[in-house]
């Protein structure tokens, strides 16, 4: 729970932003609760509001969700070597709730050798609860909370700088990761320049980097 605390403020704030936007597009509280709880991915939730605005069809909204959340495939896959859960219940609980911030928390714990299935479950469900709470708060207090309140304290950057802080720690004792990392970064830059979606760019660039690691292993 303590590990999740720096990210809880972030989840609460962005949840509130999504909640405010949800009310503005005319989503019902039931639809918001269901998407906050079961989708649990801010960017795709925000993108799907275009359906409520009438600018996106149902099929397109689902496709956008799949593309934006494609990185979640690799979030789960990259956790596997560290947790190797055999228990189906634990695997289901982690798979249901893991998202950007909880994945970062798990990586932080992995750096300290403290990542266990129990940690992953507690962490991802704590952050999911805060996320749902933030969405509900934004929905009901939409007139009081405004996105620019959060902008001034730069909460959006917490996830980014925490990943930046993780990179040198991950490299210590694992210099072999430098080459695949450079490949992934170069691919991500190229894919973004080609205007590919963020989620898909991250997934493809990471997969190319990971493939480079596999081939280096054979050499």
């Amino acid at each position: 729970m303590v590990a999740a605390s720096p990210f809880a403020a972030n989840a609460l704030a962005f949840g509130a932003v999504v909640g405010v936007a949800s009310r503005q597009v005319g989503q019902s509280s039931m639809e918001l609760f269901l998407s906050a709880f079961a989708v649990n991915a801010a960017t795709s939730q925000l993108a799907a509001f275009e359906y409520w605005r009438g600018t996106l069809s149902l099929g397109s909204a689902l496709l956008v969700t799949a593309l934006l959340n494609a990185k979640h495939l690799l979030y789960a896959a990259s956790l596997w070597p560290q947790i190797r859960v055999r228990n189906f219940r634990q695997l289901s609980l982690i798979g249901f709730a893991i998202t950007d911030s909880s994945w970062i928390c798990c990586q932080l714990a992995a750096q300290r050798g403290k990542l266990t299935p129990e940690f992953a479950i507690a962490n991802s469900w704590a952050l999911l609860s805060v996320w749902v709470l933030g969405c509900a708060a934004g929905f009901h207090l939409g007139t009081v909370i405004r996105p620019d309140h959060f902008h001034a304290i730069g909460l959006s950057v917490i996830a980014i700088v925490s990943i930046a802080a993780l990179v040198p720690k991950a490299l210590k004792g694992s210099r072999h990761l430098l080459f695949p990392g450079m490949v992934a970064a170069a691919c991500a830059t190229i894919l973004t320049a080609l205007k590919m979606g963020v989620g898909l760019s991250i997934l493809l660039a990471s997969m190319i980097g990971a493939t480079a690691a596999a081939f280096r292993h054979v050499e």
């Binding site: 980014i160 993780l166 990761l177 992934a184 760019s201 990471s206």
Partner: peptide, 30 residues
Amino acid sequence: LARFIDRYPRAKQALSASGFCLMVSYLAIQ
């Protein structure tokens, strides 16, 4: 997918590196 490919050494290496690649590509995109 991870559970399935975990038995192959090359794939295992790729899986271990995938977390780091995710971090770096995320930063590059940001």
